[in-house]
């Protein structure tokens, strides 16, 4: 049998978007799916720029910690309050004379930590509920989806504020990785994670509903593959693209929400800095020309959220199993 240069037997027009798979054993290298995805991702200029900015920001937050200590970041000196940017304090000082540069470094760590952990929580709950409802359907689907909708109906900000107020009262500080955090960080992670999952759940459910109708699922069942094998080995890997995209955007969303709650004074408690609670203090000084209080944390939030969104966009295209273009 000849096995060379074979176009897909699809209508000629689909050739416009679709690829013509030419299978030449000697010429085309074997590419794994992740290699293919990386190739597509690379072509997305904004996404690549996003990744670069993201790497720089992470390097800033982690690398900065080697230059300034945390106690320096939390060190107050009222005699130096509201100093404009200068050589001594490149980003200026805040209302209690703390160095803003050092605080954006440590604040960034907390913001990133909150973003990542809230995302993991959100994705875990969302994938679990989405997978169960999408795969099994029936009454379980009915109950869980009505619950999901109920969570979605309540405005998220409102829910966040109520929960923050309710749970954020007196939480003891915790020690993690040799550092002491305000316990409110954990509270924020939980309330963001526990209000954001419905979006993921709906995406995953839709994925499961459509993928389980594919003939390869039927083929797996005909083979005798167990239900869990079908869920974890067949359907979940095929839903990975929207889940990864949801996860990326979830990080950006969590960072924004944390900033929002902290800005309103209900989030992470000082002295632990986050980019969000740094803005809180700036609010009263906006009309007094003290721009450095809000400019630097504001810019950082803007950059991180924008770059994560670009990366999410790029991943959406790169991971789409339907776009098989190399």
């Amino acid at each position: 049998m000849a096995k060379r240069g074979i176009p897909d037997p699809q209508p000629a027009l689909s050739k416009i978007e679709g690829p013509v798979s030419a299978l030449d054993e000697l010429e085309t290298p074997i590419l794994t799916l992740s290699q293919l995805a990386w190739r597509r991702f690379r072509r997305h200029k904004m996404a690549v720029a996003g990744v670069i900015i993201l790497i720089l920001l992470v390097a800033y937050c982690i690398g900065g910690a080697f230059i300034f200590s945390e106690s320096y970041a939390n060190h107050t000196d009222t005699s130096l309050r509201l100093q404009p940017p200068a050589a001594e304090h490149p980003f200026g000082t805040d209302t209690t004379g703390r160095d803003i540069l050092a605080r954006t470094i440590y604040g960034g760590q907390i913001s990133l930590l909150i973003g990542l952990t809230a995302m993991i929580l959100e994705i875990t709950v969302g994938v679990l509920i989405g997978a169960v409802t999408g795969f099994f359907g029936g009454w379980l689907d009915n109950i869980l989806m009505r619950f999901t909708e109920a969570v979605l109906i309540v405005p998220q900000i409102f829910l966040l504020l109520v929960m923050a107020k309710f749970f954020g009262g007196n939480v003891p500080n915790i020690v993690f990785l040799g550092r002491e955090f305000s316990g409110s960080v954990i509270v924020i992670v939980f309330i963001i994670g526990l209000t954001a999952w419905p979006y993921t759940a709906r995406i995953v459910r839709a994925q499961f509903l459509s993928i389980k109708e594919n003939e390869f699922i039927l083929a797996a069942r005909a083979t005798g593959t167990s239900t869990w094998g079908i869920i974890f080995r067949h359907i979940l890997p095929n839903s990975i693209a929207p889940i990864v995209v949801a996860a990326t955007l979830g990080v950006a969303n969590a960072i924004t929400l944390e900033a929002y709650i902290s800005f309103l004074g209900l989030g992470v408690r000082p002295p632990t800095a986050t980019w969000g609670n740094m803005l809180e203090g700036a609010y009263n000084y906006i009309d007094q020309g003290v721009y450095w209080l809000w400019l630097f944390p504001g810019l950082l939030i803007l950059f991180i959220v924008l770059s994560i969104n670009f990366v999410g966009d790029g991943l959406r295209d790169a991971l789409d199993p339907r776009s098989r273009a190399v």
């Binding site: 049998m1 000849a2 060379r4 240069g5 074979i6 176009p7 013509v20 030419a22």
Partner: peptide, 20 residues
């Protein structure tokens, strides 16, 4: 008929049916 139609990505050269 052995084989499959040729890839349209390759500039045609000779009779297209020749390989089969």
């Amino acid at each position: 008929i052995a084989g499959a139609p040729p890839s349209l990505l390759v500039e045609p050269h000779g009779c297209p049916f020749a390989p089969r």
